[in-house]
């Protein structure tokens, strides 16, 4: 099993619903976030393009954050999830700086926190909170090993990219372009 997410930049309107849904679902303290929205404008008036992306931990197959963690708090979980065990984390922040996607933050309670793909929800067969709330339905989640999962199907159909592929991290978040 390899969990992955595909996000359609053609449908995303950048409303940040995914951000606030994640915050309320996962009790992320106000002022912090596990996911965020990036808007990139290209061109000059009136020949313009915008790409809007909801970004989060890429749950990389080759995660620098797991490699650099001195205590083993950052680890791989079944399904390829990259997680942090709070009680093992000493808050050194090595993972925060090692992540090319800036996906981690230091929680005020002294540990490092990040997106879990809402593991507590997917274990119950639900979708991650961001996927479930998105008004544009621009996010697809599922198992890459299952050819019939939403994410496998949409990746078969559409052109996609990953972020900073040159970092060699093998991300599991795909952007449909």
């Amino acid at each position: 099993m390899r969990y992955a997410m595909a996000i359609d930049t053609r449908k995303c309107v950048g409303c940040s619903d995914c951000v606030v849904a994640c915050q309320t679902e996962n009790n992320v303290p106000i002022g912090y976030c596990r996911d965020w929205v990036v808007e990139v404008t290209d061109g000059t008036y009136p020949q313009l393009e915008i790409e809007i992306r909801s970004e989060r931990c890429n749950h990389c197959e080759n995660s620098p954050c797991v490699r650099c963690c001195p205590t083993g708090a950052s680890h791989y979980e079944a399904g390829g999830l990259v997680l942090v065990t709070p009680h093992k984390c000493i808050g050194c922040g090595a993972c925060v700086v090692s992540c090319p996607y800036d996906a981690r933050y230091s929680h005020p309670d002294g540990y490092v926190d990040k997106c879990t793909f809402c593991m507590h929800r997917i274990q119950k067969g639900q979708q991650p909170a961001c996927v479930e709330v998105c008004p544009t339905k621009c996010m697809y989640f599922g198992d890459l090993d299952d050819p019939n999962s939403d994410v496998s199907r949409v990746l078969k159909k559409r052109k996609f990219k990953t972020l900073i592929p040159e970092a060699g991290t093998k991300p599991h978040v795909y952007y449909l372009i």
Partner: peptide, 12 residues
Amino acid sequence: NGRLCPRGTGGV
């Protein structure tokens, strides 16, 4: 259709 917008989600 089961999906609130950011303001509805942030209504708390």
